[in-house]
Design a protein around this nucleic acid. Structure first.
Lengths: 348, 348
DNA sequence: AACGTGACAGCAAGCGCTTTCTATGTAGAC
DNA sequence: GTCTACATAGAAAGCGCTTGCTGTCACGTT
């Protein structure tokens, strides 16, 4: 029924071993023989059996990419960059690798399960993107799992995640704290003193770090934070909309709203508009990430640009062993403040 | 070194066959035995060898998802929906499947190569999303490949792609033509007579169908189209920006600009703003897809909503054999006109 | 009391490939 | 002209799992 190596071998009048060697190109084969084999492969329309070769060679060409939400461009951009570097078709980088993009939906269990599935497939590498969940038992479980993967020869890279030294993983971390601080300092510099903050889900490292940066900026400028000024929500537009209304309700005198990310900021803008407030005249708004659509908001969003594509590409190369990991296995990737129309001086 | 089935068997004092059966649960095993086995699995921290079992069972639990650009929410949303239905962890649907998201970047060669890679992995199913490339040789090659996959037992589903009867694939097609027509008729109804159109890349079915719908609307209302009114570009913001400037240069009297999709429309809006034109007072703008950010444009974008998540979910279920394919193997999915602030009556 | 009948469990034969080790032929070395 | 060395090709032993077929009991039948 299906064509096997042996069929090709028979047709090319060589042994299966030779065919395998031609296909893998890691052993000297006479040019004439190689040609004959290739011809047979072509004529029979032979397709290698992936599982069989993975079993025999004890390696696979699968690379796992874990993301929280593939529908979110934040992850989409990273995934795309990673994939372009792991040498899938087109991204010339040696053997053809298949990227397995796993959508965890931010769920701890799924994260773990996907890792097991990848372990089962004997993945060549795994890249975890985005913030981690801050729950001690879960973190321990993750670290143990990652360690096991690493020990089994799977290269593990974290992209936009805090380092996990226990797990023996390379980490490219985003400087969320620094970015958050810089952003809020920009607003303070404009004269804002009453700033609302729409944070992400409580248990995520990204949420915490950005918030810490914000608070550090406030503290550095002697601004005492009112607990009413912080609202937690999800990383989506809806959440930003609702949180903004809530902030306005709690303290209508706020002159700026800092959002956990751009998507949330967009929701915040909508809420302000719907409340009849003008941006930035009445309230300034700031986001985080600088996703492509942020520049198209009206007014364009002041935000912190994260080099998602660059970081993803680098993570991909490291995962493939095509780039030296950073010294110590950890590198911090900085964001860049993008000042645009959504932030301005508060009204006197 | 690594734990194998045999190790588990030894520890549980049973044969490897029994362990396999416990793990696969497709053969009667006494409860007490099962328990003993499970305990051993747990104690040894055993992880099944995916390639080995795929080889032995001649099936795998990989499902391929082909997308043009994973960084584009249009595809991200579909991919996410598909994945949630194929029964990856969390999306309870029986066995745990791994979604392999392949980023073709719109390249014909990569599309084909990924299909080969998936074929090599003996994927359980493959879902192709988004428009197809209109090139006869390539289409023939694709159809042949899909046919081969289907014949080998891989379920092939097209989501948002034109049907490919030759290939024996189930198709969920978007009614791009109908949507395009309805959209342009809306603009005509508002009084527009000079409408610019920013089309996507020439060789894509999506591009052609949407453009055909637009032209059908014009024709139906006796509007003769000026060739200067159509510009082709890529499906991105930049392209929309440049194309709009070009359209304006060619005919400054245009009162409406219809874009190939929302992302392009966003670029168009930016170009109009930068040209000092007001939307919709001077020029109306319309997009297509209704991606999440479209409602946040200012003014909010008039567009055609495509039920991406619903279609993706359905495609996923069909790919898993959990939903009856549509009669004839083809279903057309309609879009819904969303009239918002970016379209209005032209100035007298 | 002899005998079918389930319900489990084990044996063993692969699944299709890789790779080590061995065989062979040829070319250069002396 | 014989010997060593190198370049290739083949034989065969797995890789770790699934599954058809063959036992083996413990029962319920007649």
């Amino acid at each position: 029924m299906t064509v096997t190596l042996a069929d090709v071998a028979a047709r090319a009048q060589v042994s299966p071993a030779t065919v395998s060697r031609v296909l893998n190109g890691n052993y000297p084969v006479a040019a004439s023989t190689r040609e004959r084999v290739l011809k047979a492969v072509d004529e029979l329309d032979y397709v290698l059996n992936g599982p069989a070769s993975a079993l025999a060679a004890a390696t696979s060409d699968l690379v796992g990419i874990l993301v929280n939400d593939i529908a979110d461009p934040f992850f989409g951009i990273m995934a795309s960059a990673i994939q372009s570097e792991i040498g899938g078709p087109g991204g010339r980088a040696g053997g053809e690798r298949l990227a397995v993009v796993c959508n965890t939906g931010g769920s701890p269990e799924r994260e773990l399960t996907y890792l097991t599935l990848l372990q089962r497939q004997r993945a060549a590498a795994v890249v975890l993107t985005g913030g981690a969940i801050e729950d001690a038992p879960h973190k321990a479980a993750m670290d143990a799992k990652l360690r096991k993967l690493a020990d089994a020869g799977t290269r593990v890279v974290l992209c936009g995640r805090p380092p996990a030294p226990e797990a023996g993983a390379i980490a490219l971390t985003f400087d969320n704290r620094g970015g958050g601080r810089e952003l809020t300092e920009h607003l303070i510099g404009l004269g804002h003193r009453r700033l609302g903050y729409i944070a992400g889900p409580e248990e995520r490292t990204t949420t915490r770090h950005r918030l810490e940066g914000h608070r550090a900026a406030l503290a550095a400028h002697g601004i005492e934070e009112d607990p009413r000024w912080t609202v937690h929500g999800r990383y989506d537009r809806r959440s930003g909309y609702e949180a903004t209304l809530e902030l306005l309700r709690r303290d209508p005198s706020l002159t700026a709203v800092v959002a956990a990310n751009d998507t949330v900021a967009l929701g915040a803008c909508a809420a302000l508009r719907d409340s009849g407030l003008s941006i930035p005249r009445d309230v300034s708004v700031a986001g985080f990430d600088d996703l492509p659509f942020s520049i198209d908001a009206v007014p364009a969003l002041t935000t912190v640009r994260l080099p998602l594509a660059e970081a993803g590409a680098r993570a991909g190369r490291i995962a493939m062993g095509r780039e030296e990991p950073p010294p110590g296995g950890v590198a911090s990737v900085r964001g860049e403040l993008m000042v645009r129309g959504s932030s301005g001086a508060p009204r006197a």
